[in-house]
Amino acid sequence: MNKKTKQKLAFLLFRLFSIIIVGILLSILGFIAFNGIKVINWEFLSTMPKEGMTEGGIFPAIVGTCYLIIGSLIFAVPLGVMSAIYTVEYAGNGKIVRFIRMMTNNLASIPSIVFGLFGMALFVTKLGFGDSILAGSLTLGLLTLPIIIRTSEEALKAVPESYRTGSYALGASKLQTIRKVVLPCAMPNILTGIILSVSRVSGETAPILFTVAAYFLPNLPDSIFSQAMALPYHLYVLATSGTDIEASRHMAYGTALVLVVIVLFFNLTATILRQRLSRKLKNK
C-alpha cells in the first residue's frame, strides 16, 4: 500500500468513527425524544402523578429539582467564588494554595454516590436535618463546589494584571480592586461555571438518593426541611420500582425528555455565554 492510499484509508476510518459517535448520541436523543414527546403536554408538566404514577404529571419532580438547583447554588456559589478569590487574589502560590488546589481537584473526582453517603451521614443524621431539601441542596452543593471553584479561578486568572495595577495606582485597596474591577470582568466566565454546575445538579441522582428524594409525595414541599421529589430520581423510580412498570413506561420517557431538555438548555446557555465573551475579548 502506498502512502496516499494509507492516508485515505486512515482518514476514512477517522471519519467513520466520528460519524458513529455522533450517530450514537443522536439516536439516544432521538429515542428519548420520540418516546417522550407523546406524553408531553401541559397536564404532564403541571399536575401531580396519578394512578400509581401511570397517569398525571411530573410537576412535583420539576419543582423539587428547581428547589435543589436553587438551594445548591445558594450554598455553593458564594463559597466557591470566595474561595477562588482567596486562592487567586490573596494566597499567592505557596504550599497551602497548592494543597487546596490539589484537594479541590480530588474533590471533583470523587464518585457522586460517595457524596450521597457523606451527605447522609453529615447533614441527614449528624446535623439532624433529616431527609430534606436542605440536606439534599448541601450535598449537591458540595458536589458542584469543585466545578465552581475551578471555573472561577480560571476566570479570575484571565483578568489582565494591568487592570489590577491600574486600580492600585489610583489608590484603590485590594478589596475595592477585586470588587469593582476584577469581579465584574471575570463575571461572564464565572457565570459559565455556575450554569455548568446547574446542569450537573439537575441531572445527579446518587447524591439525592439518601438525602432528599422521595418516592412519591402527595403535596409539594412546604419548607426546606421537607422531602422533595426530583426528576432524575423520579425517572429511576418510574423505570425500576413503580407499581406497574410497563404501564408507567411512557411516563418515564416523558420525564427523561424533560430532564434532557433542561440539561441541554443550561449547557447551551453556557456555550453561548462563553462564545459571546471570547468575541468581546477579541474585539479589544
Binding site: 489582565p160 494591568s162 487592570y163 495595577t165 491600574g166 486600580s167 495606582a169 489610583l170 489608590g171 484603590a172 485597596s173 475595592q176 469593582k180 474591577v181 465584574p184 470582568c185
Partner: peptide, 22 residues
C-alpha cells in the same frame, strides 16, 4: 503605564473610578 490600561468600563467610569474608590 507603558501600555494604555483602561478598565473595561465606559470612558466616564474610567475617570470616575479613582474618585469613587477614594
Amino acid at each position: 503605564f507603558q501600555k494604555p490600561n483602561p478598565f473595561p468600563k465606559s470612558v466616564f467610569e474610567n475617570v470616575a473610578y479613582g474618585l469613587k474608590v477614594n
